[in-house]
């Protein structure tokens, strides 16, 4: 594989980790202060959706326009 693919490979992984960590962390904090237990699941969904959207914008949509 060429280096551009290798770069994209690790960047996709970083985006997924970042999205889930960020929004799950926010969800856990909200749960901690409001004494609830479902915000972490909502955060997980938002994190997954936002990181997949970012990957779509960055690697899939631009590439198919070329």
């Amino acid at each position: 594989m060429s280096t551009s693919e290798e770069s994209a490979f690790w960047t996709i992984l970083s985006y997924l980790i970042a999205g889930l960590l960020l929004w799950c962390g926010i969800g856990l904090l909200v749960d901690h202060f409001l004494k609830t237990n479902f915000f972490v699941l909502i955060g997980m969904a938002i994190g997954l959706a936002s990181s997949l959207y970012l990957i779509w914008v960055r690697f899939i949509r631009i590439d198919s326009n070329k």
């Binding site: 980790i17 999205g19 936002s50």
Partner: peptide, 17 residues
């Protein structure tokens, strides 16, 4: 939605991974 994600990726997740 995306700006904090990019910021976190560049400043925390990349060196961490």
């Amino acid at each position: 939605l995306l700006a904090p994600l990019e910021f976190l990726t560049y400043f925390a997740i990349r060196p961490l991974t």
